[in-house]
Design a protein around this nucleic acid. Sequence first.
DNA 1: AATATTTGACGTAATTATACGTTATTAAAA
DNA 2: TTTTAATAACGTATAATTACGTCAAATATT
Lengths: 130, 130
Amino acid sequence: MRHIKKYNVQTLLKVIKNYFKMAYAKTKLFNKQLQDIAEIFKALSHPARLQILIYLAEIKTCITGDISEELPLSRTTVNQHLAELKKVGLIMGHVEGVKTNYCLNPVVLNTVKTMISKFIDKVECCTKSC
Amino acid sequence: MRHIKKYNVQTLLKVIKNYFKMAYAKTKLFNKQLQDIAEIFKALSHPARLQILIYLAEIKTCITGDISEELPLSRTTVNQHLAELKKVGLIMGHVEGVKTNYCLNPVVLNTVKTMISKFIDKVECCTKSC
DNA sequence: AATATTTGACGTAATTATACGTTATTAAAA
DNA sequence: TTTTAATAACGTATAATTACGTCAAATATT
């Protein structure tokens, strides 16, 4: 017998709102480029995610989901943070049997670095105190 | 007669929770330095705030609160974003009579720039794909 | 085949961010 | 002094984030 999945109201609403782009948020009204940079900054706006990145850089080799032992957070929460980093491409996940190996994405990291410094230079260059 | 201010429950709760550090968030459990960097990234994680910074850099001179005409947001919301930028020190506000002139804080901007590139270098230097 | 392990999906509570109308405060102008 | 204008504070609705327990699917192991 097939297993029929059921969803609760909260989850369905999320799907529906996303489908119809029923956004209360006005983030979408801004310049696309600004949105992209903001997205990256947001991905970097939580200490857990920063620590994950540093850990991945230090360990050098890839790791499995047991980074949660390095952080004061539960496995599921850490997994969520990993998913967010993956969403913006900062890390990659290679499935290997039951395990998933995560590692930094050097290409994206480089792009991000350039993007950020370009932005900061843009703001900084013309600075004049009032 | 003295005017005695009244506050609603939501506001009072906010004050009380802040006083007793009753945080659900576990952000505070991380390395202080990571928290600080994350804080800065968070301040930069909304396109409105990025646009404000760019605007301030372009205009060069200081401006009053009527940046709201440059953004697809109401004056009160823009004011909130300005407050957040001020909180992390990226901008300064000089009161001049009824008006408040905002401008970039070059010193903080420089610090932030260094902080960010140090962090990215730290993550990037040891990168090795898996 | 049965069991154990690993992981992501799902659900949900709590917190925080976003957005904006309303009000109070303040200083300048009439 | 009264009015006007500009601003921040306040209040509140909505949305998004954070946090974690539970569960199911999939691969290893026994």
